[in-house]
Write a protein that binds this DNA or RNA. Structure first.
Lengths: 223, 223
DNA sequence: AATCAAATTATGATGCATCATATTTGCTGC
DNA sequence: GCAGCAAATATGATGCATCATAATTTGATT
């Protein structure tokens, strides 16, 4: 894994490292069980340990990373119980986002969503799983942005941070029913039907995530 | 404000300082607009700046504190827009908690809730606003715990962290309709009626929080 | 060759020195 | 007396030395 800090510019180094690690989690470059070492990362990034420690502590706090023992920082494994809880929360929160977005969407917003869906369809036929995952995520967060709920965006971002390693791990094994459930959402959005949009995004989370749940249950019963 | 670290024991100093600052926010000892200085806090606590910096960065990240300029860390003011967004999120999430809690509550759980409500009634008649706020918070989080949703607990804790300074500021001016709306929640809990519990907690958040919204609107129009 | 203990190494925690810069203070000259 | 610039101060950011301890290696003993 290679990094380069020069291009990105943020308020402070710690935030930059934080963003880098977030992207690694969301895009599956950090797999569940992977261990992170502060000094090692600092050397790779060409900084001191301080900003790296800042970033890692922030991720540990929001449980995107876990300190198994005081000296052992790892990407945590998802449990079935945790996934079910996260799923219930997502249905409520992303339902709120979809409902609000449907009632506030401008034509330009609809167009933007359609573009994401269209590009996702292309990625699926091209078997580009990584791009498909990224566009799936873009779709969900576009709804939050159209709804104009920045605080909700932050909450959901932290939730997705925990699902990132899992989703990447599952979908690299094949599943691709990620896109189908977005079409009913689009239909509801075009009609400005908030209740229908909320139901559709709930169905996406439940049905589209079925593969994830099966994967977790298989792993947990196997050990 | 005086602190003492000796009694509490955590995994590391940064977490201890974090918890102290959280309590200060939740109990209104840190008012909106208050400025925090790393060195000053470190001296008060008898530690170096490192753990204090850790704690403050964590709070800044979750927006319980805000860095207005690179050298200026303050307790942020709530805006009306932000409060309305948080309120909508709370109705969804605390509704989920109440619904789940109502279907899972054991007799001992009901008793525990009744005790909190009873002590809150005593605090109200005694005009003890601080205790009333604390018990109000305990009631809401007891629902989450009874529901057995630890991940949701973390999300809601961070949300309450942002409301803490505001609630304390409003209720110190008098309002005390904080408790009335808990009785319908209790009624639904006793009947194991999840849907009714969710509606009742939503009503508590909307109606019980009316004073907060009025306070914010008055401040925002005044400047 | 196996085992256990001592030494070494690895690693996060903590403290602190220094830097860069924003703010405040104070002096100089008009 | 006031405008404006300079020095001093304050403060978060960064780097790094050191500490405590857990993991690993090594080596002596049986």
């Amino acid at each position: 894994m290679h990094y380069q800090l020069d291009t990105l510019e943020h308020d402070n180094l710690g935030s930059t490292v934080y963003q880098l690690l977030c992207n690694d989690l969301l895009q599956g470059r950090l797999q569940p069980g992977a261990r992170l070492k502060i000094r090692e990362l600092a050397e790779q990034l060409g900084t001191s340990v301080t900003p790296v420690r800042d970033a890692i502590l922030r991720l540990v706090q929001e449980q995107a990373l876990a300190m198994q023992s005081p000296r052992d920082i790892r990407v945590p494994y998802m449990t079935v119980e945790r996934y079910l809880e996260i799923r219930a929360i997502r249905i409520r929160l992303e339902g709120l986002a979809a409902e609000t977005a449907a009632t506030k969407a401008q034509p330009a917003d609809i167009t933007r969503l359609e573009e994401i869906v269209a590009r996702n369809a292309v990625a699926m036929t091209a078997q580009d799983i990584a791009l498909g995952c990224a566009l799936n995520q873009q779709f969900h967060f576009a709804l939050v942005d159209i709804a104009g709920l920045p605080f909700l965006h932050g909450i959901l971002y932290r939730i997705w941070l925990q699902m990132g390693p899992l989703i990447a791990a599952v979908y690299q094994q094949g599943g691709s029913a990620m896109l189908d459930y977005h079409y009913p959402v689009m239909a509801a959005m075009r009609q400005g039907d908030g209740a229908a949009a909320a139901l559709a995004i709930g169905d996406d989370i439940l049905s589209g995530g079925q593969a994830i749940l099966l994967h977790l249950q298989a792993r947990q019963s196997a050990g």
